[in-house]
Design a protein around this nucleic acid. Structure first.
Length: 587
DNA sequence: GTAGGGTTAG
């Protein structure tokens, strides 16, 4: 017998032992109804159904479009009595989000309806339901599962634990995520990834928590490595993002940090991108976004051309990144054009973020009437960010009436947000309505709303130093403040005009009225000038938008002290060199 | 015993 015959024999033997190998794939698609009926008959008549795993496979191939009653009968057609295992298999077949209602009725019929219920759910019952359900419903199901299985059982199982963690993460409940994770006895890679991704999501969604979330990610990553859990690409997505957040360039373990635009090293990001062998949509999106926040609008558009040329599919994030690039570079017509094409050419439905970017772009360009028109035309309810863009632009372009209309909308949505109140006060200050500006601040104080304190991080020889506005806690505080004064004196000698009264109110979110020139970035720059190696670029990571006064000052410092300053604020990067900023004073 | 979980985006 030759080797080929032997291989065939072996294959036949395997097939005899495992009659349904092709169906064992996890991603097997549901079968068309007729084909399924034939297979069903075959499995029953061939006696395969007496083996629970085989019957389970059959159930998983049932089309989710079959009526619920039909699928219940299917379960009962088994020569074996129905078990939770088989019921879960049936449920798995209908748990895509498309057929959520049918999955829920099955769940209710099998596990809830009669008393006592037909079957009791177990840890395998819920994860597919969580995946299919939208966040709010998934949260309800999660609570339900914990009640049903008991908190102990629910969290002892690390798969259910990871699934629960995912639900809480989608709902922004980071404390619940932490509690669930802490109860998992021996978390494995997906469980760690679920927690890291929960913090990554928090970092991306909530500016106020971004730094602490990034800290948590790095801390968890170190712990995970010490437990010899091997990270994968999913882990790195969270970790690299966190490194970008902190600007922790010198944390050598994560050399990838430098490569990503998040640290302000666009050059390295481009090198990595160029070296990457197989670039998918995500990869292009990351590079496009990097170019966007560094203000390289034209480069982003040309990369987009290459992406189309390479046949890499675009998605909603691609469009968003391109529009963001256009917005930051003032390429309004190009941005409009791409927005118009997204739905028709690429079949991507615009989401609130796209409208937000669009409105921001139009507003920055002073096309406020177009922006307002778009708000009325769009089919989605506008969010607070959209109103904020318009209010900021109305302040700059002196559109009092529209601005006040938008303020009313914003206050309806988010009356308690400190940033909103500062924004409103600045709007009135810019339009010379000083009394209203003061009133807005007073109102904020009387409501007991705390301002979000401005903070800046600077990396000096591998150690991160954080400064808050007016901070005096740094060990070198005395020298730093002396340096701030010295800088100010030198800049005035070199032609800087001192702050005017309008500039005093012209702040985005840090409250300069109280603190004059002690904004966190000035403290960070002063410290960097004292402590960093001469000639090295100064890298600052700021939590809020940089105010016009600090921006002007950073430009001058770059010239007078001959130092390059790279500052990432809440929305983009500013590269200060020789008295000029890469944003072209448009941010 | 069999099956279920992890991929941010301004």
């Amino acid at each position: 017998m030759g080797p080929a015959t032997a291989a065939a024999e072996a294959a036949l033997a395997r097939r005899a032992a495992d009659p349904l190998p092709a169906l064992r794939r996890r991603d097997a698609l549901p079968l068309p109804a007729r084909l399924f009926a034939q297979l069903h008959a075959l499995v029953l008549t061939a006696g395969l159904a007496r083996h629970s795993p085989n019957f389970s496979l059959l159930l998983r191939l049932a089309s989710p479009l079959l009526p619920v009653s039909h699928r219940l009968r299917l379960l009962l057609s088994s020569p074996l009595p129905p078990t939770t295992f088989l019921a879960n298999s049936l449920l798995l077949a209908s748990s895509s989000s498309r057929c959520l209602p049918s999955a829920l009725s099955l769940y209710a019929l099998l596990f809830l309806s009669s008393s006592p219920p037909l079957l009791r759910p177990n840890a395998f019952t819920y994860p597919p339901l969580f995946r299919a359900a939208p966040p709010a419903l998934a949260l309800a199901l999660a609570t339900h599962s914990v009640k049903f299985l008991g908190a102990h059982a629910a969290s002892c199982d690390r798969v259910l634990g990871a699934a629960l963690l995912g639900v809480f993460a989608r709902c922004g409940r980071i404390a619940s995520c932490r509690r669930v994770f802490d109860r998992i006895a021996h978390p494995d890679l997906p469980a760690w990834n679920a927690l890291l991704s929960a913090y990554a999501r928090l970092r991306a969604r909530d500016v106020a928590c971004a730094t602490s979330a990034a800290d948590a990610i790095l801390e968890l990553f170190v712990r995970m490595l010490s437990l010899a859990i091997e990270p994968n690409e999913i882990t790195l997505v969270a970790v690299i993002g966190a490194c970008g957040e902190l600007g922790a360039v010198s944390h050598g373990v994560w050399a990838l940090v430098e490569m990503y635009a998040g640290c302000g090293r666009l050059d390295l990001a481009e090198q990595v991108f160029a070296a990457a062998s197989d670039r998918d949509t995500r990869c292009y999106n990351a590079m496009l976004h990097g170019l966007a926040v560094h203000g390289h609008g034209r480069a982003a558009l040309s990369l987009l051309d290459r992406m189309h040329g390479a046949g890499v599919p675009v998605d909603g994030v691609t469009v968003l990144s391109v529009m963001c690039a256009c917005a930051h570079a003032g390429l309004v017509d190009e941005g409009l054009d791409y927005f118009d094409r997204m739905e028709i050419e690429f079949g991507i439905e615009p989401r609130i973020e796209h409208y937000g970017c669009m409105i921001d772009m139009l507003s920055r360009a002073g096309r406020l009437n177009n922006a307002e028109k778009l708000i009325h035309e769009m089919l989605i309810v506008p969010n607070a960010a959209i109103y904020r863009s318009l209010i900021r632009a109305c302040g700059i372009h002196g559109k009092l009436e529209l601005g006040e209309k938008m303020i009313a909308e914003l206050m309806r949505l988010e009356p308690d947000d400190s940033g909103n109140h500062v924004l409103i006060s600045n709007f009135y200050a810019r339009t010379n309505r000083w009394e209203d500006a003061k009133k807005a601040r007073k109102e904020m104080k009387s409501m007991g709303i705390d301002k979000n304190p401005g903070s800046s991080l600077v990396d000096i020889n591998g150690v991160l130093h954080e400064f808050l506005v007016g901070d005096k806690t740094h060990p070198a505080s005395k020298e730093i403040y002396t340096m701030v004064e010295e800088i100010e004196t030198r800049l005035i000698e070199c032609g800087r005009r001192s702050s005017t009264s309008s500039a005093l109110f012209d702040v985005e979110e840090e409250d300069k009225a109280d603190t004059l020139s002690y904004h966190s970035e000035r403290l960070a720059i002063a410290f960097a000038l004292i402590a960093s190696n001469p000639g090295a670029p100064i890298r600052i990571i700021k939590n809020l938008r940089v105010c016009a006064d600090c921006h002007e000052s950073a430009k001058l410092v770059s010239r007078v002290y001959g130092r390059e300053i790279v500052m990432r604020d809440r929305t983009r990067f500013h590269h200060f060199r020789d008295g000029v900023c890469s944003c072209g004073d448009f941010w």
